[in-house]
Computed example of a mutant assay.
Amino acid sequence: MHGVTDNVARSRFELEEEGKLAFSEYRQQGNVLVLPHVEADPALRGKGTAGRLMEGTMALVKERGLKVQPVCGYAVAWLQRHPEWAEQVEGS
């Protein structure tokens, strides 16, 4: 299990590690989730948490039959480094 949850009320995917939170905000437009912002608590930075968050986010996106449109620079760069998720990226 990827540990990522969908906080529908806040429109973001969340991953808690070490009692701290990383999250990726989203905005749904039809079958596309726009990802404008990814953030990890400073205590989690450099530990791979944001990458695990993106992995879990993409797994949920795929399970739901959706696509993503990354806007956040981190999300764009992460997806470029992980071509296995290319078919979930809008316009690919």
Results as ranks from 00 to 15, higher is better:
A75C: 09
M54K: 07
M1L: 12
H37V: 14
S92Q: 10
G65F: 02
Q69Y: 00
R52V: 12
L44V: 15
R45P: 02
V34G: 11
V68C: 05
M1S: 12
L53D: 04
H37F: 10
P42C: 09
R10W: 06
P42W: 10
A75R: 08
V8I: 11
V8F: 08
P83N: 11
P36H: 07
M58V: 07
R52N: 03
S92W: 11
L66G: 01
L66M: 14
E90Q: 08
L66D: 00
E25V: 15
A59H: 01
V32M: 01
V89E: 09
M1Q: 10
R64L: 15
K62Q: 06
K67G: 03
R12M: 11
R12P: 12
E25I: 11
M54E: 13
Q29V: 14
T57M: 08
E63T: 02
E39D: 09
K47M: 06
K67R: 15
V89Y: 08
A75Q: 03
E14K: 14
G48D: 03
D41Q: 04
E18Q: 13
G48M: 01
E90T: 00
A59G: 06
T49C: 11
E87Y: 07
E55C: 01
A77N: 05
T57E: 04
N31K: 02
Q69N: 08
N7L: 07
V32I: 11
E14C: 08
E39C: 09
M58S: 07
C72N: 04
L21T: 05
N7Y: 02
F13R: 13
E87H: 08
W78D: 01
W85A: 00
K47W: 02
L60S: 09
S24T: 15
E17F: 15
A9N: 03
P70G: 03
A22V: 06
C72I: 03
V71S: 03
E87I: 07
V89M: 13
V76K: 09
V34R: 05
H2V: 01
W85H: 12
A77T: 11
G91H: 00
G65D: 05
E17L: 15
V61R: 04
R10C: 03
E16K: 10
L60R: 08
P42L: 07
T5Q: 05
A59P: 00
R45K: 10
D6W: 14
K47G: 09
Q28M: 10
K62E: 10
E84K: 15
K67Q: 12
V32Y: 00
V8S: 04
A50G: 09
D6C: 09
V8L: 14
G48C: 02
V8Y: 04
V76I: 12
D41C: 07
G48K: 04
D41F: 08
E39N: 06
V61S: 05
